[in-house]
Computed example of a mutant assay.
Amino acid sequence: MAPNTKRVFYVNNVAAPVYLDILGRRPDIQVDRLENDTPDAAAEPVLAQAHAYQIGSSRQELAMKLQGHAPLLKRCPNLLVLSTNGAGFDTVSLADATAAGVIVVNQAGGNKEGVAEHVMAMMLTLSKRIVMSDHVMRSGAAYQRRDFMGDDVQGRAIGIIGLGHVGSRVAELCRGLFQMRVLAFDPYLTVDQIAAKGAEKVTLDELLAHADYVSVNCPHTAESRGMMGAAQFSKMQPHGYFITTARGGIHDEAALAAALAARQIAGAGLDVWEDEPPPSDHPLLRFDNVVVSPHSAGVTRQSRHNIARIAAEQMLDILDGKPPPRLLNPEAWPLYRQRFARILGFRPEE
């Protein structure tokens, strides 16, 4: 083992092999793999020596004891960084990490193309009623072409909740491909910042009232949890479609099912779920005007490769003492720098 070896571990899998390829080129980096069911006796030495944890699984796929909360951090006295795949970070408690002097980073933007294209695919599939017509034609039931009359997307309005990497790309595609009006609800961006992304800054109520399509592209946080409930669905237009590729829990699934049953909205495209995978008898799976996928929007070959490359490059920068470009808890930096110097023997950059 090389002097001053930095220890990185992951559980179950990484986004793509390129992550291990990049880290493997560095003789001072050792990578360990654990699994959800690795016995504690075998896991403890890895956790005790680890400097970095690359989280490659979703909240539902990763055992609770291996998620980035206080109990795990107590088992990792030398841990300096928690790194999540993609833009989501719901496998980590930012508060617990900050209190422990551990920084948290994500790979925001790495899968933006895959997710944004998925939003477009759902929007077009719903508008053209493709799934509904496909099912009926295969069933052998009698039908008329007009039964599947859909809508053109050209010139209509899309409301985007969260104008980050993915939301901005959705805005760009909608505006460029179909000359759509783009409304955006993002309390963290100014009017000018949103205008620079080709959108109009509006309140959530204004967005719901005027959008023909509502796309959720914000992170799952305490602030956004339950953001789309019965009151919000009731404010959407009856011909409007709800699409989410963000995280389960941001929308209330029971409220959405009720809105669909009451025909308050025209349909929905759902890539994320409170429990993943959802049970086969989930109420939302009974509607023929709902298009579903298993949290696979960002799971394209290109997106996974890009996320893995970004994650590996950012991890090496962090372990070399450089400031990470995707830091989620900057308030942890002062304590982190102290711990970094004590654990690795040199102080990271400001």
Rank of each mutant, 00 (worst) to 15 (best):
R326D: 11
V104N: 11
N329K: 13
Y10T: 11
E113N: 15
V202F: 10
I310Q: 12
L82E: 05
T38L: 07
Q314T: 11
L335E: 14
Q107L: 14
L126P: 04
L94G: 10
V104W: 07
H165Y: 12
R263I: 08
A142P: 00
V292C: 01
V131M: 10
G240N: 02
K235D: 05
T84G: 11
A16F: 07
Q264I: 10
D186P: 05
S280P: 00
V115M: 05
G114E: 02
I158Q: 00
A211K: 10
A108H: 12
R286E: 14
S93W: 11
S58W: 11
L66V: 06
D281C: 09
A99R: 15
A261Q: 15
M180D: 03
T244W: 01
I22D: 04
A268D: 05
V202A: 04
A262E: 11
Y19I: 03
S93C: 14
A254E: 13
I318E: 05
R309Y: 02
K6L: 01
L256A: 10
D281G: 07
P27D: 09
G167Q: 01
A52I: 09
A195F: 00
L207G: 07
A41G: 13
K201A: 15
I22A: 06
S83F: 12
D37M: 05
P348H: 08
N217S: 14
L94Y: 09
A108P: 06
S168T: 12
D152H: 04
M64N: 10
F346T: 09
A209S: 14
H165S: 15
L73A: 08
T98S: 15
Y336E: 04
D37S: 13
G101D: 01
E44P: 01
F346D: 09
P348M: 08
A63M: 00
I161L: 15
R7C: 07
R146I: 15
L208H: 08
E274I: 14
F233H: 11
N12A: 15
N329C: 13
H118K: 13
A341C: 11
L126E: 03
S139H: 09
D21L: 05
N36Y: 04
K197W: 01
A95Q: 14
G321L: 02
K235F: 12
G86D: 12
V14Q: 08
K74G: 15
A268W: 03
L23A: 13
M123F: 02
Y10I: 13
T244Q: 06
R339H: 04
A15R: 15
A259D: 02
R26M: 05
E331C: 14
G298T: 10
N217L: 15
E331P: 11
E61M: 10
L327W: 08
P283Y: 02
G167N: 00
L183M: 04
N13Y: 03
F242H: 01
G198C: 01
Y19A: 10
L189T: 02
A50D: 08
E117T: 13
A259S: 11
